[in-house]
Write a protein that binds this DNA or RNA. Structure first.
Lengths: 326, 326
DNA sequence: CAGGATTGGGAGAGCGCTCTCACGCCAATC
DNA sequence: GATTGGCGTGAGAGCGCTCTCCCAATCCTG
């Protein structure tokens, strides 16, 4: 149960600690026979490098943070698992840890100091409040950050997003191709980039659409659909800016005697699990969340490798998943 | 941008590094005036302790791991966010990091070595495969572990679970109180403790129930309900061992002309987000996931504090959430 | 074959922190 | 007034690792 140190490995292999270290780190130019001796010593002693010691000298934590909004705001967020899995895919093979931080009082400041004291090499920020000063502080300090989703106000920060506008346009074209001519949309919150872009992209395609506002939550989808039916009973096609809202809205249609998609075609956005638990299953705009998360991880690693490299943004193309609702 | 070290704080405060360290760690007996001087020096220099250096000597990583099944098996797991948030609540105030690891090739071995090399102080294992040797190895090595859910085969390991049997009995009593007399159940996988217990608990209450097997996934709920209706068309009450299965099963009932709950009452299990996205909303057995997760974290911390302390298990009581489906 | 260039390996200096230990100081005791 | 005890403080020894020297050995080149 005693710890094996590099010192001991070196002793067993009959080399110096420096050489043993070179072998461990796969470094250059070690004689083949010595390399073998060290490797044998490593496996015979069961040596594992002490990360803290390494970290102390390399000034790398080999850990990145994932800052998430808290449970309440996630509202059964369909994405969390996909995000984690995408990031993990990139980061694990490099032995880098993924530290999860759910937003709560003082979390972001916590993350900031973790970054400063070298406990974290970088962070990925998800669903950041536009008023949050932390992203700004981070980039000001030249610390590696990547945002999930375009920030509302332009800032020199790296982010990864899906082309929300194009996605909404996809939905608009779909509804038009279904020969719907009384088309409406239930929007996301207009103080987020995603909410704004999905509306703008849809209106570009269907300029005369009726607009009812929601905030991405299921509850707001229910309320919005009720309002919509009241003000516009002859609606025959709706683009709902999140699957979660659509999931709440469809039962409202049923209760009001509308068949989906016969009477009202519905197209959602996200292709989250809510798309499959809806009846009928949702036609929706898919974002490649897991791939986007992987890209965020890559962007972050690049920044860690090359500090103060210029901010870039990567845009993914959405696709339409046709199911039964529209 | 240069790092501030304890050395420097000490210099500024005019004390020795040892004394500065005592102040930082809130330790015993430092003269009030010196304490003040050090605190002033800390804030004026913006000092943050280097965790790696501390970790190197304390042999504590101040990080715990959360081992999760991979994305596919989570199947839009309703729990992930709650688990994370429960653990976070306990762990954050102590400055302990939560490292997320999704199961993939070699993940568990990875976790094991992270533990051994002191990169992680302990791990919480969620949804462990009964055949998985890792939990056994961990306890054999005397490393701190907590399981989410009772292990299938009894082993001397600390775990936190909900009283599954009692929960299923709750569901059984509910269906009986609704005067149903042709009662069935769709089970979870019988190679998991949860699957077994929910069936046993239900049968204890409704011994003559018709049993159809599922595996907790939505898809299996659909298939199981189809089978059930074929073999037992006069069924008027069903306990479905997971909300996700129930979510899939209810549309099957509708398609076959059954009203829920008028013709067939449905009770689920989990009180996950799937309970709310069902139509009608599910009556279900609630597990206090977030509280359970918090308790797991506490148990783990206790083990870290007192290694080789005896394994304990904590059981939470489930409750029935009555909604519209039964 | 001499001289320089190249290469592999070892010694050792830290990285920033904690913690033991010993010392100095002052109050309490005889 | 000398001795004891306690308490606060500082000196310094590591924790386990990486990495920069520097030296020895080998290689090439004219």
């Amino acid at each position: 149960m005693k710890r094996v140190t590099l010192e001991e490995v070196a002793r067993v292999a009959g080399v110096s600690r420096a050489t043993a270290s070179r072998v461990v780190n796969g470094a250059s130019s070690v004689d083949e026979s010595l390399r073998h001796a060290v490797q044998k010593a490593i496996s015979s002693t069961g040596y594992l490098p002490n990360i803290a010691a390494r970290s102390l000298v390399t000034r790398r934590a080999d850990a990145i943070g994932l800052l998430l909004p808290d449970e309440r705001r996630m509202d059964g967020d369909p994405h969390l698992a996909s995000v984690v899995s995408g990031v993990t895919r990139v980061v694990r093979p490099l032995g880098i840890h993924l530290v999860l931080m759910m937003t709560g009082p003082g979390t972001r400041e916590q993350a900031l100091s973790d970054l400063r004291c070298g406990r974290l090499d970088g962070v990925i920020l998800v669903h950041t409040d536009p008023a949050d000063p932390v992203p700004g502080q981070l980039i000001a300090a030249g610390l590696p950050v990547v945002l999930a989703g375009r920030p509302l106000r332009p800032m020199p920060i790296t982010y990864v997003d899906v082309n929300q506008t194009a996605g909404a346009a996809l939905a608009g074209r779909r509804l038009k191709s279904l020969q719907r001519n009384r088309i409406a949309t239930i929007t996301g919150p207009q103080d987020t980039a995603a909410g704004q872009d999905r509306l703008a992209g849809f209106l570009a395609e269907v300029p005369d659409a009726v607009v009812v506002h929601g905030d991405f939550t299921r509850q707001s989808g229910i309320a919005a659909m009720e309002r919509l039916l009241r003000c516009c009973p002859d609606v025959d096609g709706v683009f709902i800016a999140s699957d979660l809202m659509a999931n709440g809205a469809i039962p409202v249609l049923h209760r009001n005697g509308r068949k989906v998609p016969a009477d009202v075609a519905v197209v959602g956005f996200d292709d989250s699990s809510a798309a499959l638990t809806s009846e009928p299953e949702l036609t929706t705009v898919r974002q490649p969340i897991s791939d986007m998360a992987a890209e965020m991880a890559r962007q972050l690693l690049r920044q860690i490798e090359q500090p103060r490299s210029p901010a870039t943004s990567v845009m993914f193309e959405p696709s339409l998943v046709v199911r039964d609702s529209g």
